[in-house]
Each structure stands twice: as C-alpha cells, then as structure tokens.
C-alpha cells in the first residue's frame, strides 16, 4: 500500500502509523455527556467503503493526515493534512456558532 502525503508525495505504507476513523478530530466538550464520549472513543460506523481515517507519517514528515480510503478495496482517494481539516472544521463551527 502507498499513501499520498501532501507534504512528501506518495510513500510506502511502512512509513505510516494508523489510528482509525477520523472521528478522532471531533473531540467532544468535556461536558458533552456520556453518549457523545462513548461515540467518540468507542462506537464506529465501520462499514465497508470509503472511510476518512487518520494516518501519521511517522517515518516521514510527522504530519497527521486525513486519508480517504476504501476499506473494501484499499483504493486511496486522497489525503489532506489533518491540521488543515481541523482548522477548517473549527472555522466552520465558529461561523455557525456566530450566526446562531
């Protein structure tokens, strides 16, 4: 398997560390309640098909990536820096919050 690091280019699987679905980007507030936390830490959709997931380019640039990969075929559709995704999410949430 080879993954496209946005900073380093396409690299071998050996350089990466995996950490599951990218739900881990959306950490609930401390007081979000047991359901939200159970969701975040333990419950997963886990269906075959495209999955946004976390990969760490551990033996490369050190970037955490959000990779879109099909868990049934292993076809990789793309990768973004997790930091960019998180910042965009945060911004979106802030804007939304400001409106309401």
């Amino acid at each position: 398997m080879r993954l496209p690091c946005p900073l380093c280019g396409e690299r071998d699987l050996r350089e990466f560390y995996y950490q599951g679905a990218a739900v881990s980007l959306t950490r609930p507030d401390p007081d979000a309640g047991a359901d939200a936390w159970a969701d975040y830490v333990h419950l997963r959709e886990n269906l075959p098909g495209d999955l946004e997931e976390m990969w760490h380019h551990a033996q490369g640039c050190g970037a955490w990536l959000v990779v879109t990969r099909n868990t049934a075929t292993h076809v990789v559709k793309g990768a973004k820096l997790a930091m960019d995704t998180k910042r965009a999410d945060t911004k979106r949430a802030d804007t939304k919050g400001a409106r309401t």
């Binding site: 398997m1 071998d12 995996y18 999955l51 997931e53 868990t71 292993h74």
Partner: peptide, 11 residues
Amino acid sequence: YSSYAARGNLP
C-alpha cells in the same frame, strides 16, 4: 489499518 478486503500487504 481498517479493512474488509481479507488480504494484506507486504510490510
């Protein structure tokens, strides 16, 4: 890595 492919890779 998450997978339903029932096959792995070389590493």
